[in-house]
Amino acid sequence: NMTTNERRVIVPADPTLWTQEHVRQWLEWAIKEYSLMEIDTSFFQNMDGKELCKMNKEDFLRATTLYNTEVLLSHLSYLRES
């Protein structure tokens, strides 16, 4: 059983600085953390943090459901504000 610390993704605090690998790690973490289903992860495959942060609700909806979109966008905006 993993502790919270072991599951925590170590990525730069500012999502606009993320590499493609960071985006992948964040997505994998969010899927596990929030038990998200039905995400087309290939949609995010060649995307870095700058591109991710430019995405709006409609962009996310092409890859996943409305619920997942709201979870991911709210977590992303939380990270950008902190």
Rank of each mutant, 00 (worst) to 15 (best):
N1A: 10
N1S: 03
N1D: 05
N1T: 14
N1W: 02
N1G: 06
N1V: 07
M2N: 07
M2D: 02
M2Q: 13
T3C: 13
T3F: 15
T3I: 10
T3E: 04
T3L: 10
T3R: 07
T3M: 13
T4V: 12
T4K: 12
T4I: 13
T4M: 10
T4D: 13
N5L: 14
N5I: 01
N5F: 09
N5V: 06
N5K: 12
E6G: 07
E6H: 04
E6R: 08
E6I: 09
E6F: 03
R7V: 10
R7K: 05
R7S: 07
R7F: 07
R7C: 10
R8P: 11
R8N: 15
R8C: 05
V9Y: 02
I10Y: 06
I10S: 15
I10K: 14
I10R: 14
V11H: 11
V11P: 15
V11W: 15
V11Q: 11
V11I: 12
P12S: 14
P12C: 07
A13H: 07
A13V: 13
A13W: 13
A13T: 14
A13Q: 15
D14G: 04
D14M: 03
P15K: 00
P15W: 00
P15H: 01
P15Q: 02
P15S: 02
P15D: 03
T16Q: 05
T16P: 05
T16D: 10
L17F: 08
L17A: 13
L17Y: 09
L17D: 15
L17K: 09
W18Y: 01
W18A: 01
W18R: 02
W18C: 02
W18L: 01
T19V: 04
T19H: 15
T19L: 05
T19N: 05
Q20V: 08
Q20K: 15
Q20T: 11
Q20F: 02
Q20S: 13
E21N: 09
E21I: 03
E21P: 02
E21S: 09
E21W: 05
E21Y: 14
H22Y: 04
H22V: 07
H22G: 09
V23I: 04
V23T: 06
V23F: 02
V23W: 01
V23S: 03
V23R: 02
V23G: 00
V23D: 01
V23E: 00
V23Q: 00
R24W: 14
R24V: 14
R24F: 11
R24D: 02
R24S: 14
R24L: 12
R24T: 10
Q25E: 04
W26Q: 01
W26H: 00
W26V: 01
W26S: 04
W26F: 06
W26P: 00
L27E: 01
L27V: 13
L27C: 04
L27T: 04
E28F: 04
E28W: 05
E28S: 08
E28P: 01
E28N: 04
E28R: 12
W29N: 15
W29D: 15
W29G: 15
W29F: 04
W29C: 11
A30P: 00
A30D: 02
A30R: 06
A30N: 08
A30F: 05
A30L: 07
I31N: 02
I31Q: 10
I31T: 11
K32R: 10
K32W: 07
K32I: 07
K32T: 12
E33Y: 05
E33L: 00
E33T: 05
Y34D: 03
Y34F: 15
Y34N: 15
Y34E: 07
S35Q: 09
S35K: 14
S35G: 14
S35D: 12
L36F: 06
L36Y: 01
L36G: 03
M37Q: 05
M37E: 08
M37R: 10
M37D: 13
M37A: 12
M37H: 11
E38M: 09
E38Y: 08
E38I: 04
E38P: 09
I39H: 02
I39T: 07
D40V: 01
D40P: 07
D40T: 05
D40R: 03
T41A: 11
T41L: 14
S42I: 10
S42L: 08
S42D: 14
S42E: 04
S42N: 15
F43D: 07
F43I: 07
F44H: 01
F44E: 00
F44N: 01
F44Y: 03
Q45C: 10
Q45S: 12
Q45M: 13
Q45I: 01
N46E: 10
N46M: 08
N46W: 08
N46P: 06
N46I: 04
N46C: 07
M47T: 04
M47H: 05
M47A: 07
M47V: 09
D48M: 03
D48I: 04
D48G: 08
D48N: 06
G49M: 00
G49V: 01
G49H: 02
G49E: 01
K50Y: 15
K50F: 10
E51M: 09
E51F: 05
E51I: 05
E51T: 13
E51Y: 02
E51W: 03
E51L: 08
E51S: 11
L52N: 01
L52F: 10
L52W: 00
C53G: 08
C53W: 03
C53T: 11
C53H: 04
K54N: 13
K54R: 10
K54V: 08
K54H: 03
K54S: 12
K54Y: 04
K54G: 12
M55G: 01
M55W: 11
M55R: 03
M55Q: 07
M55K: 13
M55E: 01
N56K: 15
N56Y: 02
N56A: 09
N56R: 06
K57V: 12
K57F: 03
K57E: 08
K57C: 06
K57S: 05
K57P: 07
K57Y: 08
E58D: 11
E58I: 04
E58C: 09
E58H: 05
E58K: 07
D59N: 04
D59T: 07
D59A: 11
D59M: 07
F60E: 00
F60R: 00
F60M: 05
L61V: 08
L61Q: 12
L61D: 03
L61E: 07
R62M: 13
R62G: 12
R62H: 10
R62S: 13
R62L: 12
R62Y: 03
A63L: 13
A63Q: 11
A63Y: 14
A63N: 15
A63E: 06
A63T: 09
T64K: 01
T64E: 01
T65K: 03
T65M: 03
T65A: 03
T65G: 10
L66D: 15
L66W: 13
L66A: 11
L66T: 09
Y67T: 12
Y67I: 15
Y67H: 14
N68Q: 07
N68H: 03
N68Y: 01
N68G: 08
N68L: 01
N68W: 00
T69I: 02
T69N: 05
T69C: 06
T69Q: 01
T69P: 00
T69S: 11
E70Y: 05
E70M: 05
E70Q: 10
E70G: 07
E70P: 01
V71A: 12
V71Q: 11
V71L: 09
V71W: 11
L72S: 00
L72P: 01
L72Y: 02
L72W: 00
L72A: 03
L72M: 09
L72D: 01
L73I: 06
L73A: 08
L73D: 06
L73C: 10
L73P: 01
L73Y: 05
L73M: 10
S74Q: 03
S74I: 02
S74D: 13
S74C: 09
S74M: 11
S74T: 10
L76E: 01
L76Y: 01
L76S: 02
S77P: 06
Y78V: 15
L79F: 02
S82Y: 07
S82F: 09
